[in-house]
């Protein structure tokens, strides 16, 4: 939640510069301007890969790379949706709730071990629609009730989680539909189909961001909402559409997650929000909005996945992963925040 106020600008700029921000600014100038900053995530990714490969050559084995791509599939699809929201300067905390609703819908409607349904791919369609609907509601709540998105989506997170746990009856339900399971099990050109789906999601997101009016408007709103409004952008409609679009991507990742696990349960979404936010932020999309994009997020997802994979290869406890991701969020946000625009940070 950031607030722009003008009156105290000059005073706050001079006197509120603490030692910390001074050091950070020095580091930022050291790395040059915007051009260098946008290349930093890619440099981090390359350095990371080289270091891990030196420490453990197994890292660059084909089998490990396939495993890497497979574990990046769900986070990539999730992060595509989240990128649009963060580009607007908002946040969507309902990632885990929406993902679990979509996974619940697909498992309960396709062949499973709890009821007699067997709708095949209609279940997948229904799951994606359910995800889109959750996002649509988030957008409506945020714009119509006029409350900040982190609060609206915090509520939606638990509404989704409650709904899916209730429908699953608090237990794990297996997915028995062979063709949906094939998303994770069947391979095409050496990679699981889920990876290709995630890649298609990335292409779709890239087209939306760079070649459609919606993508342009989302960037404009993130850059400066007032200016966008004055330029004739229908802010409310774009916001609702963006949240629905994010829900669409969360819905797809819910299906992928259910296919990969072969079941759906109460904690299918645990830790996903965190990984997605880390990926978007580490990729270089600014939380203040208007800067970054889906290509940044692709690199961010790869950084997060490579790091997780590398930590396992190096024998570091997987439990410490969230700690590392948390520190990465702090570092990335602290280095990338465009502080000149921020008078008050809340």
């Amino acid at each position: 939640m950031t607030i722009h106020t003008e009156p105290l600008k000059s005073v706050s700029d001079i006197e509120r510069t603490t030692l910390m921000t001074l050091i950070l600014r020095r580091i930022a100038t050291l790395f040059g301007g915007r051009r260098w900053r946008s290349l930093a995530p890619l440099a981090v990714l390359i350095v990371l890969c080289v270091l891990i490969a030196i420490a453990n050559p197994n890292f660059i084995e084909l089998r490990n790379l396939v495993r890497l791509a497979n574990s990046a599939a769900v986070p990539l699809t999730l992060a595509m949706g989240l990128t649009f929201i963060i580009l607007m300067g908002s946040i969507d905390l309902s990632v885990e709730g929406t993902l679990s609703v979509s996974a619940m819908v697909v498992v309960l409607l396709a062949a499973n071990d709890a009821n007699g349904n067997d709708y095949g791919w209609w279940a997948v369609l229904a799951a994606v629609v359910a995800g889109t609907a959750m996002g649509f509601i988030s957008g409506l709540v945020q714009t119509m009730l006029r409350i900040p998105s982190f609060m609206a989506t915090l509520g939606m997170w638990f509404i989704g989680l409650g709904l899916s746990v209730y429908m699953l009856g608090g237990s794990a339900i297996r997915l028995n539909d062979a063709s949906i399971r094939d998303l994770a099990l069947h391979r095409f050109l050496g990679l699981p189909v889920a990876v290709w789906v995630a890649f298609a999601a990335f292409l779709l997101a890239a087209v939306i961001q760079y070649h459609t009016k919606l993508g342009r408007h989302i960037l404009a709103i993130g850059g400066d909402e007032d200016v966008a409004k004055l330029s004739g952008v229908n802010v409310v409609r774009v916001r609702i559409t963006a949240f629905a679009l994010a829900g669409f991507f969360f819905g797809i990742s819910g299906v992928l997650a259910a296919a990969q696990l072969g079941q759906s349960h109460a904690v299918i979404g645990d830790g996903r929000l965190f990984a997605a936010v880390t990926a978007v932020v580490v990729g270089g999309t600014a939380l203040t909005g208007g800067e970054g994009g889906v290509v940044n997020t692709l690199i961010g997802v790869l950084i997060v996945t490579v790091l997780a994979n590398g930590m396992i290869l190096l024998g570091i406890s997987p439990y410490i992963q969230q700690t590392v991701q948390g520190l990465m969020i702090i570092a990335a946000v602290a280095l990338s925040l465009d502080r000149v625009r921020l008078r008050i940070v809340k």
């Binding site: 939640m1 950031t2 910390m20 921000t21 950070l24 946040i91 982190f150 965190f274 936010v277 880390t278 932020v281 939380l287 406890s317 439990y319 410490i320 992963q321 969230q322 700690t323 590392v324 991701q325 948390g326 520190l327 969020i329 702090i330 946000v333 602290a334 925040l337 502080r339 921020l342 940070v345 809340k346």
Partner: peptide, 22 residues
Amino acid sequence: LRVPSFVATLATGGVVTGLALW
């Protein structure tokens, strides 16, 4: 570091959860 509080606490929350798991 002037990080918005919901992100700062989301991040420290992750740090703490990781430590607790470990």
